[in-house]
Simulated scan of single mutants.
Amino acid sequence: MKKVKYYYDSENLAFRKIKIKKRTKVAYAALFLLASALFGTLAFIVLLNTPYFETPKDRLLSREVDNFKIQYSILNKKMDQIDEVLANIEERDNNIYRTYFNTSPIPDEQRKAGFGGVNRYKELEGYDNSELVVNTSKRVDVISKQLAIQSKSLDEILKLAKEKNKLLAAIPAIQPVKNENLRAVASGFGYRTDPFTKVRKFHAGMDFSSRTGTPIYATGDGIVERADNTASGYGNHIVIRHGYGYETLYGHLSKYNVRAGKRVKRGDLIGFVGSTGRSEAPHLHYEVHKNGEVVNPLNYYYGNISAAEYIQIAKVANQENQSLD
Rank of each mutant, 00 (worst) to 15 (best):
E11C: 09
I18F: 13
A30H: 04
F32Q: 06
A35W: 01
S36C: 09
T41C: 07
L42C: 07
N49L: 14
T50Q: 06
E54T: 11
T55M: 08
T55A: 03
T55N: 04
R59D: 09
R59L: 15
L60C: 03
R63C: 02
I70H: 10
I70M: 13
Y72E: 13
N76R: 14
K78H: 09
K78G: 12
I82V: 13
A87I: 10
I89S: 12
N94R: 14
I96A: 15
Y100F: 15
Y100V: 10
T103W: 02
P107I: 09
R111V: 14
A113H: 03
A113N: 04
R120K: 07
Y121V: 02
L132T: 10
V133D: 01
V140Y: 05
D141E: 04
V142C: 01
V142K: 03
S151K: 03
D155F: 00
K166G: 00
A169G: 02
A170M: 00
Q175Y: 01
V177Q: 06
A184I: 03
F189V: 08
G190C: 12
R192Y: 06
F196L: 14
T197G: 05
F202I: 07
D207S: 12
V224R: 06
E225Y: 07
E225D: 11
S232H: 08
G243V: 01
Y250M: 07
G251T: 08
S254Q: 07
K255E: 06
N257L: 01
K262H: 00
R263E: 06
V264R: 01
R266C: 06
G271N: 02
G277K: 05
R278A: 12
Y286K: 08
Y286H: 10
H289A: 10
G292W: 08
V295G: 11
P297S: 15
Y301G: 06
A317W: 11
Q322L: 10
S323N: 09
